[in-house]
Simulated scan of single mutants.
Amino acid sequence: MKIGKVLNLEVRDSRTGIVHEYYCKIIEKNKNYLMIDYPIHAQTKKTAFFPIGTLLSASFIGNDQAVYQFSSEIAARIKMNIPALAIHIPDQTDIKRIQRREYVRIETTVDVAVHSTDNQFPPFVTVTSDISGGGLALITDKNIELGIGLKADLWLSLQMQNAEYYYIYGQAEVVYIRDVNSRVNLLSLKFISISKQDRQRIVRFCFEKQREARQKELI
């Protein structure tokens, strides 16, 4: 866990039992503690103030694009260049990998601009049916004729839970076409060229959507 790494936190409200989600960054570390900036609530965007001893579950995306999770607690409030909190560093054996390297696909709508890499079709704008770090499925009009093997340049707009927007570029190849109804097809594409940073952002986006769905199930 390097300085600058984003942590997603889950903290249970002791009064209501509801689990709230926050995010923060690691701003310093030593042998025993991670120093984090004050967490921001994922929905309200308000800064959270936790008492010392608050238990939390933290997760982050590793260099291998898998998601890792550990439990910790707030050990102290400290003064640095900005107000910060110290949390206990877990033993390596207590950090659990909770997502396999294979990319998890989630059903969600993301705006996508599609351009032909080889000028085989006119550019168009559509939305996803699902997405993962390995590819996506697009909803397309029947009038747009795309064949298996065609390559496309894709621009996606991802909104994270912390209200950040990322604009992702990737080159993809059509691998499957499904006839949905008389009006639309569903095109499955796999990424054949995408930066590691952009792929990690998609993985993080999918992870956040999973957590959001689990949170709704608990309400």
Rank of each mutant, 00 (worst) to 15 (best):
L158R: 11
C206V: 02
Q120I: 13
C24E: 06
P51R: 08
Q215K: 15
D13Q: 06
I3T: 00
L158A: 07
K142T: 03
L156S: 02
R97A: 00
A172C: 03
N185I: 00
W155T: 15
R77I: 10
K46C: 06
D141A: 06
N162E: 00
K25T: 06
L218N: 14
S182P: 13
T108K: 10
F207E: 02
R183N: 12
Q92A: 15
Q99Y: 07
D64T: 00
L34H: 07
T16N: 04
P122G: 03
Y165A: 13
P122W: 01
Q99P: 08
S72W: 02
L146E: 06
M35E: 15
M160Q: 10
A84G: 05
V110A: 02
M160D: 08
N81F: 15
N162A: 06
Q159C: 11
N63P: 09
A42F: 13
Y165V: 10
R97N: 01
A113G: 13
L138H: 00
V125H: 15
N162D: 04
A152P: 03
I139Y: 09
R15M: 10
P122F: 03
R97P: 03
A75R: 15
Y165L: 14
V174C: 07
P39Y: 05
A48F: 11
V184N: 12
L146D: 01
K216M: 15
M80N: 13
Q159D: 08
S188M: 12
A86W: 00
N143L: 08
S157A: 13
L9Q: 05
A76Q: 07
S193H: 15
Y176E: 12
K45M: 13
G149I: 02
S195F: 03
K151M: 14
I139F: 12
Y167N: 12
N81P: 10
L34F: 08
D94C: 09
S129M: 12
Y165H: 14
I202Q: 04
D13K: 08
Q43K: 15
S129T: 09
N32M: 12
P51T: 01
T47H: 11
I202V: 02
V110T: 03
D91S: 14
R214D: 13
A137V: 02
G170D: 03
I131E: 05
R204N: 10
T16H: 06
R105C: 03
G53Y: 00
C206N: 05
D94G: 05
S132L: 06
N32F: 12
V184F: 10
I106M: 12
K151D: 11
T126M: 07
T126R: 08
N63I: 08
I26R: 08
Q159F: 11
I98R: 04
E173G: 07
F60V: 00
P39G: 04
K2P: 07
T54P: 07
S116C: 05
K45D: 11
E212N: 12
R204V: 09
F49I: 09
I177N: 06
V114D: 01
D179S: 02
R77T: 10
I98Q: 05
N32E: 12
Q99A: 01
N162T: 01
D130Y: 03
V67S: 04
K142N: 05
A137D: 01
